[in-house]
Computed example of a mutant assay.
Amino acid sequence: MSTTLLPREVQLIRDAIARALRQPDPQRPTQSIGRATAGIYAFYDYDGEPIYVGQTAEGFSVRLGRHLTGQRSDAVAKYVLDPFEVHTVALWSLPHIGDMPARQRKAALDPFEYTVYQKLLEDSAFKAVLNEGDIAPGPLMQMSAPLVTVIIPDEIFPDRSHPDVRIARRAQTISLLAKNISERKVSKGLRRALVTQTRRLDELARRRYDALGGAIEVEGPEGVVPEDEDL
């Protein structure tokens, strides 16, 4: 009987996150990126689709731990973000903001978060990410390239990335998010996240069906016709 506290797959991912945070900070190579006290981060799924952006004024180690290793995160608790979906993490360290007094950091980080948010929208196939809260508009900032790291080890990638597993997981997340919405008064942003997740599920399910030789059909004026035919 195993005496480890965590399942092997979970421990492998945690180890990968820990290794990522030990990498040198591109802006301050003498320290690790995990020690950076201010910056912007973005999450990408298995298709390279951007799914979430955030800022931290307390350190990447703390913030990624909250989102990805089962610690407290509003986005996870509300079923906006499923950590299972995260394959790649991008980190923009902003040490000049980290050197500011803590009370000044958020306002200084806001335009950088908005800049990354605009880039993610441009790169997204859906022109949307899963953030529940609105990203405060601001001037677009000049930013260096981020540190980009994969947090899913090769040995578990085939199982985690299988489209049927992802479809089932995403459908479950949508169900929990919809249940959350149905039981309380929620923000417009939470409903927006639900719309984005349903679009993402539809696209993934369609791709899987097509890959297996299917053809989506729609009801046209002359009966049921393949979707890709002229109506």
Rank of each mutant, 00 (worst) to 15 (best):
G48E: 02
A171W: 01
K127R: 13
P111F: 13
L177W: 01
Q197L: 12
G220H: 04
I181R: 12
A16F: 06
R208T: 08
E113C: 13
K78W: 01
V89S: 07
P153H: 08
A193G: 14
L176N: 12
M1F: 03
A20Q: 06
M1S: 07
D15G: 05
R191N: 14
K78T: 04
G59S: 07
Y52L: 03
P83F: 13
I17P: 08
L140F: 10
V76W: 06
L12A: 03
L201D: 09
D99Y: 03
R63T: 00
Q118N: 14
A136L: 14
Y117C: 00
A57E: 05
P158E: 06
A108T: 03
L109S: 07
A20P: 03
G65I: 03
F112K: 00
G65T: 01
K188S: 15
D110P: 01
G65M: 08
H96F: 15
L68M: 10
T30K: 12
L91K: 05
V218P: 03
M141F: 11
L204I: 14
K179Q: 13
R192S: 15
D99I: 04
V76S: 10
A38I: 15
E113S: 10
P29F: 06
V53L: 06
L64P: 06
D123R: 14
P95T: 03
N180R: 14
L176Y: 14
I174H: 03
R105A: 09
V86I: 11
D134P: 10
D154C: 08
A38M: 14
Q23H: 07
K106H: 10
T30V: 12
A193S: 15
E49P: 15
D110L: 09
R28M: 12
A108P: 11
D228R: 00
R72V: 11
Y117I: 01
R191G: 02
G213H: 01
E229R: 03
S144P: 04
P101Q: 12
Y41H: 00
I152K: 02
R191Q: 15
I135E: 08
R19Y: 02
S61M: 05
S182K: 15
Y114M: 02
R170H: 12
G220I: 08
V10C: 07
G34V: 08
D123L: 15
P50Y: 06
G214W: 02
A178F: 12
Q71H: 08
V150K: 11
L177Q: 09
Q23K: 15
